[in-house]
Design a binder for these strands. Structure first.
Lengths: 411, 411
DNA sequence: TTATTTTTCCCGACAGTCGAGATAATTAAA
DNA sequence: TTTAATTATCTCGACTGTCGGGAAAAATAA
């Protein structure tokens, strides 16, 4: 990576855009203070971005005190759009967000119960992406970036799904497929990546003690077990990844998991795992793909009523999670663990085990026990994280570098 | 982080210095090609560095072919020095390396068998650091950086030892202590951090397939269990860290470990763990601090001879390591695992278990089984890694940024 | 209407990179 | 021995970007 003055400008453009995302619409002076750039530099950069149509002056704000009132600058909402697609086991959700970060359109489509081949699934997604643009009257080039979230294992640095609960080991290259219907850049991430980012950002804002280097893990409990780890960087930026935590080995010769291996965390602590333990099901059979929530609720009620087999199943799940989180925490040094997903409704049954596990770590002995929090709205976390990341990435990779096709450069 | 032209120059200076470290002494043109900088920029930068005394023209090399022969440029050996200190359970080793990377002096000092308080230990280290400078006739300011390696857990971004096999939870701040005898920057890392870097760099050179994003883990087997993970970045750079792998929980209510927790990996797979399993020692007693190698050798011989209890102990250790490595690999996606340390002499007894563990991962099912290699010379890896890192850090943080006290700038 | 305060813009100084051409050092051939 | 060819390095002018300081603009209080 060599450094030229051109790249210098790109970095400072990106920095100004990042400031605008972090602070919301702000004045010249605020941006200068936040970024550390001189007033003159901010002026030149914002003027340039305004000429390109990236930024727009907002209507004047009621002046607070004497002196010339500030002129707020913000992202030009119609400059570009990003699509956020969330694939869950039951449905696919499509959201369109404008450059200012406001939700413009949203709809979802249920997935057929028994769909084993990716072909029709992809066809439907392609149709829906086209529909997303049409419904808002946008032409093909307006959507600049598509951020897809899913469960399962995603290849690093390539929008390819390597393993998923529904399609198993059948790899799917979303970029190749979606290139047929859009010119946008396509990205694919495990959804917990973004839950972790969203939680991380919020914690950073509320608690100044959480800064550079702190790690937060978000655990998603449900049909499957997901986990994202976010690391805070300087200036409120955050990087994250989603290891296949649910398929880390818990017990060497344990029960068969949906992934084809034995003894995964998910095989004990996923919904199907809990059910199997409760009903003492055969350990060499692949469990049902989806367990209805109602059935889990019934089981939980019985556990709370003191029924042994049900209570035992949840206890096993909790212990398994606690141990797995302890191992994760040993390896990565996590300062906080947030738990989310449909499974949080059974958290009273799981938490004792989770705490037992965490307390066994060396970290705990040294007084650095990770805090455990509950997050009820996973959907919101994922959407927030995904769109914020999408806009930030658009800013950094295309807008700051002037690589965006439809920049209207003036003079 | 704002970008100014000043910082631009610093980055490019650092880049040129990195090229020189990567390529060895090289000519103007080679550097320009490697770095991507224009010939003019390289010229201006190298001229500057030469005037500052950082670089020096090497004696002419036998010309290969027609044309003007190349003038090789290399680090000026006497420009600065770094000290590499390796703390092991038995001794402390001191090395002095000049700016060109050549070993200038080396000696070591055994540690007294029973030393529980850090005070005298630190006093001895301070004396030896002073001695290291004296013996080579250097004044205090010549040693610019001290890189200390140890076993145990080190605080991130601060030269503080948080836990060590010898001093337990007594925290030691090396920077504060060493400031009394030297003005140099003091850094502290777990030694496996550098083993991992050294292996990673070598693999990168030999196999072009290993590039950006690939991860290598180095497992050190001995009295304790250490592990370092290195990630390859662009341009041959490498980042690494050393999680407390040996104290990750293996079995929830397992045997007591030296660290005070129960069921750590080390409590089963460290030398003391193997010995305890073989002799069926009590699980609630802290094992001996150091097991003589001769005793382990005897045990291994008996295991190879087919004796059940000995064979069982090594098998347990192997399985434990395999499982722990499988978990690590799930969470971090490791492409290669190198095993080193005194324990490699028992690798024939451990390897089957290690492989059994790794084969159970989802990665293995997908054909991405981490390769297992053996590295016999751990001392060399650590020294190589430590000094290379020290010089690179000196280049980046002090030389490139012109922060070095004794730069002799010429108009 | 005037003074005050705050924001924004403009200009010159300085620093860094790049491309192209000039210069230097050596070998091969005449 | 001389000359041409080849290759490496250095120098110069053009361009771009940042920074500081000061001037201009816009709103409010007196």
């Amino acid at each position: 990576m060599i450094s030229s003055t051109e790249m210098l400008r790109h970095q400072n453009r990106a920095h100004v855009l990042a400031g605008l995302r972090e602070l919301g619409p702000s004045a010249h002076t605020t941006l200068s203070e936040w970024s550390g750039l001189s007033s003159a530099s901010v002026s030149s950069i914002t003027a340039e971005l305004e000429a390109e149509g990236v930024l727009a002056k907002l209507e004047h704000v009621a002046s607070s005190g004497r002196g010339r009132p500030r002129v707020l600058l913000g992202p030009n909402a119609t400059f570009a759009y990003v699509a956020a697609i969330r694939i869950t086991t039951e449905a696919v959700e499509y959201s369109l967000v404008n450059y200012a970060g406001t939700l413009v359109d949203r709809f979802h489509e249920a997935r057929p119960a028994k769909e084993k081949a990716p072909k029709h699934f992809l066809e439907r997604i392609k149709r829906c992406v086209a529909r997303l643009a049409e419904r808002s009257g946008l032409d093909g080039a307006s959507i600049q970036l598509v951020s897809i979230t899913t469960k399962g294992v995603v290849a690093p640095d390539s929008p390819t799904l390597i393993w998923s609960p529904v399609f198993g080991d059948k790899a799917i290259d979303f970029a190749a497929e979606l290139q047929e219907v859009t010119a946008a850049c396509v990205y694919l991430h495990n959804e917990t990546t973004f839950s972790a980012q969203a939680v991380s950002r919020r914690v950073h804002r509320q608690d100044a003690a959480f800064d550079n280097g702190h790690r937060i893990a978000v655990l998603s409990l449900g049909q499957s077990i997901g986990l994202g780890v976010a690391t805070l960087k300087s200036h409120g930026r955050v990087s994250s990844f989603a290891p296949p935590f649910g398929h880390m080995i818990d017990q060497p010769q344990g029960s068969l998991c949906r992934c084809g291996s034995n003894g995964c965390v998910e095989a004990t602590a996923g919904f199907h795992g809990i059910l199997r333990t409760a009903f003492d099901g055969p350990s060499d059979t692949v469990p049902a793909r989806i367990i209805p929530l109602a059935e889990m609720d019934k089981l939980a009620a019985r556990a709370r009523g003191g029924e042994h087999s049900a209570e035992y199943a949840f206890r096993c799940a909790g212990d398994c999670l606690g141990l797995a989180l302890a191992r994760l925490s040993s390896l990565l040094g996590v300062a906080q663990i947030s738990i989310t997903g449909h499974g949080v409704r059974y958290i009273d049954l799981l938490l004792p085990g989770i705490n037992r596990g965490l307390e066994q770590t060396m970290q705990a002995r040294q007084g650095r026990l990770p805090q455990v929090h509950i997050e009820h709205d996973e959907t919101h976390l994922v959407h927030e994280g995904s769109t914020r990341w999408a806009l930030a990435t658009l800013d950094e990779t295309r807008v700051a570098t002037r690589q965006l096709s439809h920049l209207q450069v003036v003079g």
